[in-house]
Amino acid sequence: MGRSQDLSEFKRGTVIGCHLCNKSIREISLLLNIPRSTVNGIITKWKQLGTTATPP
């Protein structure tokens, strides 16, 4: 089974925006129709690195 496509930069930014508006991971997941683990990974990466961009 292959890896699915990465989320767009806009969608990742939307996840961070929702997080900054105090939405829970579950709420963000349901709102954007993204798996909870993906939402958690985006938020964790943003907290650690300060960016959501994928490395080249």
Rank of each mutant, 00 (worst) to 15 (best):
I43M: 01
N22A: 13
I43D: 00
K47A: 04
L49S: 03
I43A: 01
L30D: 11
P35M: 02
W46M: 00
I25D: 06
G50R: 07
L32R: 05
P35L: 00
S37G: 02
P55Y: 13
T51Y: 12
V39D: 01
I43W: 04
K23C: 04
V39Q: 09
I28P: 01
I25S: 01
G50Y: 02
L49V: 08
G41H: 08
I42Y: 10
N33G: 08
T51G: 00
L30E: 15
L32F: 06
L32Q: 03
T51K: 08
K23G: 00
K47N: 14
I42R: 04
L31V: 06
R36K: 14
V39I: 15
N33A: 09
L32T: 11
R36H: 09
L31R: 03
G41K: 10
R26P: 06
V39H: 07
I42Q: 03
L32Y: 12
T54K: 13
I25Q: 12
E27K: 13
L49M: 07
P35T: 07
I43V: 06
N33W: 09
R36F: 04
K47Y: 10
K45L: 01
T52S: 11
I34F: 08
T38R: 06
N40S: 14
E27I: 04
T52G: 13
N33M: 06
T52Q: 03
S29L: 02
P55W: 13
L31P: 05
E27W: 07
T44I: 14
R26L: 02
N40Y: 15
N22P: 00
S24Y: 12
R26A: 02
R26V: 15
L31Y: 12
I28Y: 06
S29W: 11
T44H: 10
T44S: 09
K45Y: 01
N22V: 09
L31D: 09
I34H: 05
T52D: 05
L30H: 12
G41R: 14
S24R: 08
S24P: 02
G41I: 01
G41Q: 10
L32G: 04
T54M: 10
V39W: 13
I43R: 04
N22M: 12
I28G: 02
S37M: 13
P55T: 11
L32S: 05
P35E: 10
T51R: 12
I43Q: 00
K23T: 07
L49Q: 10
K45S: 01
Q48M: 10
T51I: 10
T44E: 13
R36Y: 08
L32W: 07
I43F: 02
G41M: 04
N33F: 09
I25T: 12
S29H: 01
T38E: 09
T51E: 11
I34M: 08
L30P: 04
L32M: 03
I42V: 15
